[in-house]
Design a protein around this nucleic acid. Sequence first.
DNA 1: GTATGGATGTTCT
DNA 2: GAACATCCATACT
Length: 208
Amino acid sequence: MKAGPYNLRRLTRAQLPRDTVALARFLIGKVVVRDLPEAGVLAGRIVETEAYIQGDAACHAFNGLTPRNRSLFLKHGHAYVYIAYGTAWMLNVSSEAEGVGSGVLIRALEPMVGMDAMARHRGTEKPRDLLRGPGRLAQALQIDRALDGLDLTRDKRLWLGVEAATDSTSPAKIGVSTRIGLTKDAHRPLRFYLKGSRYLSGPTALNR
DNA sequence: GTATGGATGTTCT
DNA sequence: GAACATCCATACT
């Protein structure tokens, strides 16, 4: 599909790595597309992700299936959306086979299409503050519980895309660090980011 | 740019 | 009742 100056193709389930860490790396450079009834298409390039793997105390599925985390157990490519600290919605992509609770948190996007609408939803005009941080990007794209559990390879409201003209992001451009804001398993190197991007959420020290 | 503290309300114990 | 995958305003370098 054509979105602004960009030519976007939807990623199929076959194209998505099933492995959690592989998916977290793969998603760097790909595109989150949100289709809203009134605002139309909004899109942003993924510049930062975090992996939440099996056996990881920081993963919401660590203690088994609950009403909140059930979407983490869907087959890879589904949305897991939950609210953190009462106000901030978090968008994750489920990973692994059905029945395995793990996923990838989308932490930051670079604005591509629909910045006017994003600015309205966020209450700020500054491009750098529209999508930098998981709660901010969810607010800008109007992502909430209503989208929890949807199939990102099928649903028209929210999906993952790739720019038709671009090759996959080279591994050399992807940095690795510890994850942000955790109290459990905080040491694991499971945060991935596009080196040199101005749209990352972490402190400078973690973005080198 | 970094550091700190308060607001927030859902989730699970 | 405690924990929490955050954000914002404020103060400071």
